[in-house]
Amino acid sequence: MKRMLLLLIVLLTGCAAQTEENDFNSFWLILDGTHTVQEFGGSIIVLGGAVVLPENSQVNGHLLLITGSANIDGTLDGSLYALGGVVAVGESGIISSNVNVGGGQFIRHPNAQIGGPINLGDAPDLPSVATMTGSSALDAVIGFALQTIPLLFFAVILARFLPHSLGRIEAMIVHHASVSGATGVLVLLVGLSLLVAMAFTVVLIPVAIISGFLLLLAVGIGWIALGIVLGRQLVRLLPRSPGLTLTAVMGIVILRLLLAILEPIPLIGTVAIGLTMAVGIGAVAMTRFGQRRYTPPDPNVL
């Protein structure tokens, strides 16, 4: 989600740079913590945390708030764009240009000075999966189904058309789980960082989107393979062994259920999800999406 927001920022930045020349050439990105700005010659983008412009402070640029908060008691020589979070303009606060609020909360002291028009959008906040019906149990079931059904659909296609590739990934998980996990940790860490780095270059955003899709695909295939491994253990209890598709479906449902149960538990939930993700993605990476079998290296070769 945060990465999607980062992409959004970069896109917005690109748009702003096109419409108002040089306004976003220099900007300060705030991701967390509280930052008091006394003087700054550029725009400020807040993606988390808080930014405070105290009395007599001066920012020559725009303020773009995605989430977090902004308290303006000084001068913002530019426009305010708020897509979320809380903006409070105090008594001594001055905004020289427009105020565009598309989401979040906007609080303004009556004496605050705003040079341009105030555009208060009434766009509703996007509902999160967890708060769709008002009933927490029903929301949890819908959330679980929304995440699991696409995975099952994908698993059925893979089991039908690429069973050998899935078999290689499954074998990698069964026989080399620790190697898969270790590789997965590196792929995830480097992959996510690389996506952010590419997104920041703006010109590489299409590459970042494709890479992000590949990473997501690898996570999905990894989970499907893990589901098959689990499913194989379960079908041993049955009198007759079902086919690969049914084994995969059973395994994935059980795996997703287990993870859904563990998820709310602090630390354990994160570790369980991270570990399964790492093992799955590592197996996918080591077998090149199931295209080759992993063989341990010749111990003599450097």
Binding site: S26, F27, W28, L29, I30, L31, D32, G33, H35, F40, G42, G49, L186, L189, V190, L192, S193, L194, V196, A197, F200
Partner: peptide, 30 residues
């Protein structure tokens, strides 16, 4: 070498976009 290149790329980008604030933890983690 790849991770070192990536982490220094991230530090370089962070310096360029305004390191006066805080620094994301992704960099020391990598």
């Amino acid at each position: 070498f790849g991770i070192f290149a990536l982490v220094h790329l991230l530090y370089g980008m962070h310096v360029t976009i305004g390191y006066a604030g805080s620094a994301p933890l992704a960099m020391p983690i990598l």
